[in-house]
Amino acid sequence: MSKITFNEHQQRVLEANPNVASVSDRAIQYTPEFKIHAVKEYQTGKGPAQIFSENGFDLTVIGPKKASSSLNRWRTTFRLYGEDAFFEERRGKNSTGRPSEKDLSAEKKLEKAEARIKYLEAENELLKKLEELERQAKKRS
Results as ranks from 00 to 15, higher is better:
Arg135Gly: 07
Gly63Trp: 08
Pro99His: 12
Ala115Ser: 08
Leu110Phe: 04
Ala122Ile: 01
Thr31Trp: 06
Leu104Asp: 15
Val23Ile: 06
Gly82Cys: 04
Lys129Thr: 09
Ser2Ala: 14
Arg12Tyr: 01
Ala113Ser: 07
Asn19Trp: 05
Leu110Ile: 05
Glu89Ser: 08
Leu80Thr: 13
Val20His: 11
Leu59Ser: 04
Thr76Pro: 00
Glu121Tyr: 05
Trp74Thr: 13
Glu101Leu: 14
Glu111His: 08
Ala115Met: 03
Asn124Arg: 15
Glu88Asp: 11
Glu123Ala: 09
Lys128Val: 03
Lys138His: 05
Glu15Tyr: 01
Phe78Ser: 02
Glu114Phe: 05
Lys46Ala: 11
Asn7Phe: 07
Glu8Arg: 11
Lys46Cys: 01
Glu15Gly: 01
Phe6Gly: 00
Arg79Met: 10
Tyr30Ile: 00
Ser53Val: 03
Lys46Met: 08
Val13Ile: 14
Glu54His: 05
Lys139Leu: 13
Ile36Lys: 10
Leu126Asp: 13
Glu41Trp: 00
Thr44Ser: 14
Phe57Cys: 03
Asp103Gln: 12
Ile51Pro: 00
Thr76Lys: 15
Ile117Phe: 08
Glu83Cys: 01
Arg98Ser: 10
Ile28Ser: 02
Asn124Gln: 10
Ser53Leu: 04
Tyr81Met: 08
Lys108Ile: 10
Ser53Asp: 10
Asp58Ser: 12
Ala85Met: 05
Lys102Glu: 13
Phe78Glu: 04
Glu123Thr: 03
Arg91Cys: 00
His37Phe: 14
Glu15Leu: 15
Ala137Ile: 06
Gly45His: 09
Asn19Gly: 04
Ala16His: 11
Ile36Thr: 07
Ser70Gly: 12
Gly56Ser: 09
Asp103Pro: 00
Thr96Ser: 15
Lys139Gln: 14
Thr76Arg: 13
Lys65Trp: 02
Leu126Trp: 12
Ala113Arg: 14
Arg73Glu: 11
Leu71Phe: 07
Pro48Arg: 05
Gln10Ser: 12
Asn55Phe: 01
Tyr30Asp: 01
Ala27Met: 08
Arg79His: 15
Leu130Arg: 11
Ala106Thr: 09
Lys3Asn: 07
Asn17Ala: 06
Pro99Asn: 09
Pro18Cys: 06
Ser2Leu: 05
Lys93Glu: 04
Ile28Phe: 04
Gly97Pro: 00
Gln50Pro: 00
Trp74Val: 11
Lys108Arg: 15
Ser68Pro: 00
Glu33Ser: 10
Val39Ala: 10
Pro99Glu: 13
Leu130Ala: 14
Glu83Tyr: 10
His9Glu: 09
Ile4Ala: 02
Glu88Arg: 13
Asp103Ser: 14
Glu125His: 06
Phe57Gly: 07
Glu107Tyr: 09
Ala49Arg: 10
Glu134Cys: 02
Ser95Asp: 12
Arg90Asn: 06
Val13Leu: 14
Gly92Arg: 06
Pro99Cys: 01
Ala137Met: 11
Glu8Trp: 02
Val61Gly: 02
Ala85Tyr: 07
Tyr81Lys: 13
Met1Asp: 12
Ser53Ala: 11
Lys93Ser: 11
Ser100Arg: 09
Phe87His: 14
Phe52Lys: 02
Val39Gly: 09
Phe87Trp: 14
Pro99Trp: 02
Gly92Thr: 11
Lys65Tyr: 02
Lys35Asp: 00
Arg91Ile: 09
Tyr42Asn: 10
Val39Ser: 07
His37Asn: 10
Ser141Glu: 13
Asn124Leu: 08
Leu127Phe: 12
Leu126Glu: 13
Phe34Cys: 05
Ser105Ile: 05
Ser70Ala: 12
Ala113His: 10
Lys118Val: 03
Glu125Lys: 13
Glu125Thr: 11
Val39Asn: 09
